Simulated scan of single mutants.
Amino acid sequence: MVRLTRAQQQARTRAAVLAAAVEEFTEHGFADAKVDRIAARAELTRGAVYSNFPSKRSLYLAVLLDSVQRDEPAAAGAFEAAGAADGAEAFARVWLERLPLAGDAPDASKLKSRSLTGVFADEPGRTAMAQLASLEALLLALALESCAGPGTGRRVRAAELIMTLLHGAGHLAETAPGFGDPFEVARACRSLADLEADDAWDPPHLPYVAAPRLCDDTWTPPGELTDAITDRPAGFGEDGIVVVLGTGRLRAAEEGVRAPHRGEAVTVALVTDDPAEIGALVRLRIADLAVCLRRAFGPAAGPPMRLVLDERALLAAAVGAGTAEDTEVAVRVRDGKVVARAEGRGAAYAAATASAPAERPSGANGR
């Protein structure tokens, strides 16, 4: 008889719980699913379920994330968009593939569409959902901008409208299955990509952002972190900006992208002090979006920044940041040293617009 290692046994137990949870959520939905029934389906104790997943919500999110990870290798190849309009339509087509069909069972449909309706009704969850929606729109906008070519302008508002349309289609697929034509929705997203609107980037608080603290600190970044969008290693050897954001400050990611000097690396790290639920939500939403971006845009999916899900707070520790919801800390790295630090609202912008001490005239005030 082959004796399993502890890690192998944990992996087997986790897989059994996930398989049982898929059946339970498919039949009963999130609200009416019972952990006791999941344990019984998996032929495990209730304690064994909770030793792997601390709550029903964390288990539901794990089921959805597992479906994202399983679907990507089996998905069709990248559309390789040739322009912003092509990219928007391709992204919409990929995103709409998840929607259930008329006649599908309601609870199974919600699982298929990765619905989060009713899953996060508390304030921390609602805050994280709103901030994630803004970050997703930014990432889609950056992909659209990269397809459109240099000098074509900001596309964040167009991306927000595209995501609004897609999520609306998803909600209708849950509540009124069979309504609407997904091909028409995709074509509508195409037309939105080139929407001419006043989309200047000019946040009103930037003139009031405090100057960063100039310094000359040792920079010891962690290794083996992954860019969540490209799924490639995220190295930290170059000069550039590192921004650490809690889940209540994700909108600030754009400040790190728009402000830096041309050609500098920008890394945005997402942190949370609730890894089991809010952290799982972040992993799910970013992984789901990244799959759609990679399939729709191919190599162009990589925005002009690296996005790191700093689940063990390794990069946060290197920067000297915490993991609270309102965390916003940024540093500028140059020649292997941290040369500027900023905290609080506008930190990303402050660090990105800072000059190194050697570049500053005597008596400069930090701006």
Rank of each mutant, 00 (worst) to 15 (best):
S115G: 10
R251P: 09
A193F: 02
A82N: 11
D104R: 10
L225M: 15
A169P: 12
G103S: 11
A169I: 04
L132V: 06
A90P: 00
R345Y: 00
T164A: 15
P357Y: 07
C189N: 07
A16C: 05
D122F: 04
T5S: 14
E72Q: 07
P299D: 08
A342M: 04
A75Y: 07
T230W: 08
V22Y: 06
A90F: 06
L18W: 06
E72L: 13
S146N: 15
V338W: 05
A90G: 08
E311Q: 13
I278N: 04
W95L: 02
D66V: 05
R249T: 11
R341S: 08
T230R: 07
A173D: 09
G153H: 13
R93T: 08
V329F: 06
L18Y: 02
A74G: 09
V68R: 02
P182K: 01
I162S: 02
E24D: 14
V22G: 01
E145A: 12
R295F: 12
D227Q: 03
G240D: 03
A11N: 11
S355R: 15
D231L: 14
P233V: 00
A20Y: 05
D326Q: 13
T127C: 12
A75H: 01
T220L: 12
S191E: 13
R306N: 14
D326C: 01
R114K: 12
G125P: 02
A347R: 01
T353C: 06
D122S: 12
A88K: 05
R155G: 04
A317T: 03
A75T: 11
T218Q: 15
A300K: 11
E264T: 15
A40T: 10
A158L: 01
G298C: 05
E328C: 10
A81T: 03
T5I: 00
K56Y: 05
L214P: 11
A148L: 07
F91A: 05
S115L: 06
A121D: 14
A253T: 10
A105P: 05
V268M: 08
A211N: 12
D198W: 00
A48L: 13
G298M: 03
D231M: 12
P275T: 04
V333T: 11
A19D: 09
V185R: 04
P150N: 08
R283V: 02
A42W: 06
A290T: 01
R154M: 13
L289F: 05
C292A: 15
A92L: 02
H205F: 15
C292G: 11
L144E: 01
T26Y: 00
A42K: 02
A108F: 00
P204A: 07
Q69W: 08
A350T: 02
M163S: 12
I38H: 05
Y60V: 04
A81F: 10
Y60Q: 09
L138V: 13
A186N: 08
V156P: 06
L270R: 03
A324Q: 11
D231W: 15
E27D: 15
W201A: 08
E238K: 13
K112S: 10
H167D: 15
G118H: 10
S67F: 08
F297P: 01
L111Q: 05
E24A: 05
P177N: 10
A301S: 14
P221R: 07
T175V: 13
A318H: 02
A188H: 11
D107P: 07
I229T: 03
C147T: 11
R367K: 07
L59F: 06
G235R: 12
A354P: 03
L245H: 00
G87E: 01
D227L: 04
E359Q: 14
A356C: 10
E145R: 08
